[in-house]
Measured scan of single mutants.
Amino acid sequence: MSIQHFRVALIPFFAAFCLPVFAHPETLVKVKDAEDQLGARVGYIELDLNSGKILESFRPEERFPMMSTFKVLLCGAVLSRVDAGQEQLGRRIHYSQNDLVEYSPVTEKHLTDGMTVRELCSAAITMSDNTAANLLLTTIGGPKELTAFLHNMGDHVTRLDRWEPELNEAIPNDERDTTMPAAMATTLRKLLTGELLTLASRQQLIDWMEADKVAGPLLRSALPAGWFIADKSGAGERGSRGIIAALGPDGKPSRIVVIYTTGSQATMDERNRQIAEIGASLIKHW
């Protein structure tokens, strides 16, 4: 067993022997301040990774656009098919120029040779490549099948209805392509620590998230040296922004954090800054 596999296998073990965790309302004060600064709703939840206990939450059962955070769930569904012998990570998928959609920095470079399922998941999570996500959605049967996968996990809230990039439209009061912070946090925890996926697939999923290259201005910008984070960000229309993450000190994750916002007129930089400040408060009061 590799060191990384050992780390993920012992996530519940280490967490069980940690000192009790206590909620700190100071972080919620910052979440509410972010709402004021952005002029928009902000949803927040913080779960203990081992027990699933909610440590703090704000608007945990209000719907927010998922945006690209759905790509972690998508690759979880792909990995479940791999575990069941219905898919192979090494299978190569070929596609054409007509398949390319807006923001496809990886797939646009491989029109000639195609990409493997493993490479597509890596591109979808680490670079948020939209064509990679659409190609992977095709392998599982489309958005409705991802929703069905989530329902089978016990998540009857999260739903995907459309493809990239239309799913980022974020129309107010439109339930399409949305989740709730509580539902997303619980589902992410199941994917990373539950028995739904094999140990190898859980490790692969967290490795992809740990290698995320496009979430630097968010929670990662607030992390002290030595902290662990595996995350996936999302951005959408109407001032929408979000991030889902597993993080913790001492090089291992111990909490799940989900943050979503929508309806702001603020710039992307300002949305990023507010999420980073929430992260800084979380870490300060850990």
Rank of each mutant, 00 (worst) to 15 (best):
L28N: 07
D36R: 15
L38P: 07
A40T: 09
A40W: 05
R41E: 05
I45Q: 06
D48S: 08
I54G: 04
S57F: 10
P60N: 10
E62Q: 09
M66R: 01
L73P: 11
L73A: 13
L74S: 03
G76L: 06
A77Y: 15
V78R: 02
V78P: 00
S80I: 09
V82L: 06
A84L: 12
L89P: 07
L89S: 06
G90C: 08
V101M: 09
S104N: 07
T107R: 00
V117H: 03
V117E: 04
C121R: 00
T126R: 07
S128W: 03
T131Y: 05
A133I: 02
L137T: 08
T139I: 14
G141H: 06
E145P: 09
L146M: 10
T147V: 10
T147A: 07
T147F: 00
F149W: 14
G154S: 08
T158L: 02
W163K: 09
E164V: 01
E166A: 13
N168E: 02
N168Q: 05
N168H: 03
E169M: 13
A170C: 14
I171K: 15
P172Q: 11
N173G: 13
T179D: 02
A182S: 14
T186Q: 15
T187C: 08
L188G: 04
R189M: 15
L192M: 14
L192D: 02
L192W: 08
T193S: 12
L197P: 04
R202C: 09
Q203W: 09
Q204F: 08
I206F: 10
D207T: 13
M209T: 00
A211G: 15
A215F: 04
G216I: 07
P217T: 10
L218H: 03
R220T: 03
R220P: 04
A222I: 11
A225C: 11
A230I: 06
K232C: 01
E237R: 14
R238D: 07
G239R: 04
G239C: 03
R241C: 06
I243V: 12
A245F: 04
L247G: 01
G248L: 00
P249T: 08
P249C: 07
D250N: 15
G251K: 15
K252Q: 12
S254R: 14
Y260E: 00
T262E: 09
T267I: 09
I275L: 11
E277R: 11
G279P: 01
S281N: 15
L282I: 14
I283H: 05
K284M: 11
